[in-house]
Amino acid sequence: MDKLTIATNSKTYPMYIGAEIISNLPKVLQDTCKKVSKVLVISDESVAALYLNRVLDILKQRFEEPLSFVIPAGESAKSFDVFYQCQTFALENGLDRSSVILALGGGVVGDLAGFVAATFMRGIPFIQIPTTLLAHDSAVGGKVAINHDFGKNMIGAFHQPNAVLYDIDLMKTLPKEELRSGFAEVIKHGLIGDREFYGWLTEEITSLDDLQGDKLQHAILKGVAVKAKVVSEDEQEKGLRAILNFGHTLGHAIEAESGYGKITHGDGVAIGMIFALKVSEIIFNINLSSEKIKEWFKLFEFPTTIPKELDKGRLLERMKHDKKATSGKVRMVLLKDIGETIVRDIDDEQLLILLKDF
């Protein structure tokens, strides 16, 4: 088992990564939370069918009646309605300020459950128990949110978990398209913050079948380490943390314009990263081997071009509504080299040309 300490201005907390470590959950609760009155596990239908009873049985070693609330699977669950249902359930079942919420699932569950915890009685503790590779990114850093028709994660807060318990055995049932989706974020972390790790990825991971056991654990550990370093320096995205959005400006626009859930987050980010690499090469007149990276992406069946049915003008408007946009200008995270990022405002006319040429 690996342990990584996540240090931010508001909270320092542990992240445990390893196989068959879910049984440590009662001890993690004891070590990271004060006296706990009640525990509520929020999970989705897919994960609950596989792991919820096991987690509840483990919790019963310490808590007489751990509670659970199951939400629909998929991005559509990050809505006002589902958020309100969770709050209502918590109130009806007598949760108080000494209660703890456990987020058992992928990024959707983590974002939603974390936002419920952040807003219930003005904030109670929660623990992330990720079950997807994609959640290695969202489980750390404290950004919790729900979606709005105008954009992804537009309604949210910063609320750090008390701990992250990452049992890689819970990913054995993960569909390949979801594993691929999470791998996009792993690649992102290498590209923006760890050249050596990126090199390891391109050498050691040449198919999704390679993402298991020690290699999977190493990929998660290194990916999270990049994010943890950035978050420790800029918890609330005032500056440096924006680099974590590499590939997301276009990626989020594609997700929103396609209709949430029609394309996975990772597939959208993969397209966005290739686009950001191309834009970087054009603007800075450099060679980042974008075509070679594009071919490597194809080994995992990532899409590498914008879906033909999406209008470039509408994508531009979506990008302008991005949370990082300033004064109506799109702000993109670009690379000057692998591991060296720069944030640049791009005007509408130039960006539309770049989108049409991509």
Rank of each mutant, 00 (worst) to 15 (best):
Ile6Gly: 04
Asn9Phe: 04
Lys11Trp: 03
Thr12Asn: 12
Tyr16Glu: 05
Gly18Ala: 03
Asn24Pro: 00
Asn24Val: 00
Leu25Tyr: 03
Lys27Gln: 10
Leu29Cys: 11
Thr32Arg: 00
Val39Pro: 01
Val41Ile: 04
Asp44Trp: 12
Ser46Gln: 10
Ala49Arg: 01
Leu50Asp: 02
Tyr51Glu: 11
Asn53Asp: 15
Arg54Lys: 07
Val55Arg: 03
Ile58Lys: 02
Lys60Tyr: 05
Arg62Leu: 07
Phe63Met: 11
Phe63Cys: 10
Glu64Trp: 03
Leu67Phe: 04
Ile71Leu: 09
Ser76Leu: 13
Ser76Val: 12
Ala77Ser: 15
Lys78Ala: 13
Ser79Met: 07
Val82Glu: 14
Cys86Asn: 09
Ala90Thr: 06
Leu95Trp: 03
Asp96Pro: 04
Ser99Asp: 03
Ser99Trp: 02
Val100Ser: 00
Val100Ala: 02
Ile101Asp: 00
Ile101Arg: 00
Ala103Ser: 13
Gly106Glu: 13
Gly107Pro: 03
Gly110Trp: 08
Val116Met: 11
Ala117His: 09
Ala118Val: 05
Ala118Leu: 07
Ala118Gly: 12
Phe120Asn: 14
Met121Arg: 13
Met121Thr: 11
Gln128Asn: 15
Ala139Tyr: 07
Ile146Arg: 08
Lys152Tyr: 14
Ile155Thr: 14
Gly156Ile: 09
Gly156Asn: 11
Pro161Thr: 15
Leu170Met: 15
Met171Tyr: 10
Met171Cys: 12
Lys172Asn: 15
Thr173Phe: 09
Pro175His: 13
Glu177Val: 14
Glu178His: 14
Arg180Pro: 11
Arg180Phe: 13
Arg180His: 13
Ser181Cys: 13
Ala184Thr: 13
Glu185Lys: 08
Ile187Lys: 09
Gly190Pro: 05
Gly190Tyr: 07
Leu191Val: 03
Ile192Asp: 12
Arg195Met: 05
Tyr198Trp: 12
Trp200Ser: 11
Thr202Arg: 10
Ile205Arg: 00
Leu211Val: 04
Gln212His: 06
Gly213Arg: 00
Gly223Asn: 08
Val226Pro: 02
Ala228Arg: 01
Ser232Met: 00
Glu233Gly: 01
Asp234Gly: 07
Gln236His: 11
Glu237His: 06
Glu237Ser: 05
Leu240Pro: 01
Ala242Tyr: 10
Gly247His: 05
His248Met: 05
Ala253Trp: 04
Glu255Cys: 10
Ser258Arg: 09
Ser258Cys: 13
Lys262His: 08
His265Pro: 07
Gly266Ser: 09
Gly268Tyr: 10
Val269Leu: 11
Ala270Trp: 07
Phe275His: 08
Leu277His: 06
Lys278Ile: 13
Val279Asn: 09
Glu281Cys: 12
Glu281Met: 11
Ile282Val: 15
Phe284Tyr: 15
Asn285Ser: 15
Ser290Asp: 12
Lys292His: 14
Phe302Asp: 12
Thr305Cys: 05
Arg314Leu: 11
Leu316Lys: 02
Glu317Tyr: 06
His321Gln: 10
Asp322Ser: 04
Asp322Trp: 04
Lys324Arg: 06
Ala325Thr: 09
Thr326Pro: 00
Lys329Glu: 11
Val330Ala: 07
Leu334Asp: 04
Leu334Tyr: 03
Gly339Ala: 01
Val343Ala: 02
Arg344Met: 07
Asp345Lys: 02
Asp345Tyr: 02
Ile346Tyr: 04
Asp348Thr: 09
Leu352Arg: 02
Ile353Met: 04
Leu354Ala: 08
Leu355Asn: 01
